[in-house]
Simulated assay, not measured.
Amino acid sequence: MGKVKNPFLVVNPKSYLYGKKILQLAESTDKIAEKSRLQIFFTCPFTDIRYIREHTHFIIVTAQHMEYLKPGRGMGHILPESLQEAGAGAVFLNHAENPLTVSQLSKTIIRAKKLGLITIVCADSLLEATAIAEFKPDILLCEPTDLIGTGQVADDSYILKTTEQIKSINPDIAVMIASGITTAEDVYNVIKLGADGTGGTSGILKAPDPVRRVQEMAEAVLQAQRDRKNVTGRQ
């Protein structure tokens, strides 16, 4: 089964890139992951999963969604086994752009775990995050929906309170804070404050040089981890 290695970075092009353009970013990100030894999740459209997996070695190719159905009937739905077979190592669930009901989410997390897929589960509030924590996702992405894509990061108190509360429920859950993340400085701050990981979409894709922005973010994650360790002794 896949394992989360803290800290980590998520490069999330959503559906802004596809085909050759997303492969170019994936290959460049793969080189960054190799050199930095940082665990980097890279999301892509379903049809590009195998394409990207066959051309990369160090990033964790991540599906944007899946369902809990099993092989058999299910025309038009997303079969977990097909994602795994294509090369996905992780999956996003319950994103604000594709939310799930509580019942769907619990069943889908179970299916993903059985297949060894790392689950990155989104929550739009601390209340929802604490509820979802009971399902034991691998990574809990706590991002206020109204901050997604705004360039405005959640305030320090939110990051501190969210991380502390989720860890009190289950210390094995990795906490990710990502809404509004735009710059390497944003990345540094959320990791320094205690988050296990972060990532971005518009902050990367709208940068003058997206590859350089990924590099800067990766360096910021690692620097924040070093600085946090020096202050607290925490790994």
Score class of each variant (00 low, 15 high):
P137D: 06
C142Y: 11
S82T: 13
Y68P: 00
L79I: 03
G233I: 10
D156K: 13
A90C: 06
V102Y: 12
E143N: 06
L141K: 07
E81P: 02
G149I: 03
A33L: 03
I78V: 15
Q165Y: 05
I78S: 04
A33D: 07
A112R: 11
S36I: 06
Q152I: 15
I173T: 04
N189R: 15
L25F: 08
V221D: 06
L23A: 01
D172R: 13
E143C: 08
T56N: 08
V231S: 12
I139P: 01
Q235T: 03
I181S: 09
I204K: 00
D209A: 10
N6L: 13
A133Y: 05
V4S: 04
V190Q: 05
V4T: 07
K3E: 14
R53E: 11
V121R: 07
K136I: 00
T47V: 11
A112Q: 06
S15I: 15
P13D: 01
N230P: 00
N98M: 12
Q104T: 05
T150E: 07
A96W: 02
M75C: 10
A88K: 07
N170Q: 01
E164R: 14
G116D: 05
M176V: 00
I148C: 08
G197F: 05
V102G: 01
R50T: 06
S15N: 11
P208A: 13
K3Y: 09
C142K: 09
I132K: 09
T29K: 04
I78W: 00
E34T: 14
A195V: 02
E134R: 15
P137K: 13
D186N: 15
M176I: 00
L79H: 06
E134W: 04
V231T: 13
K14F: 02
F41D: 05
E81S: 10
Y188A: 01
E67Y: 00
I118T: 13
I148Q: 09
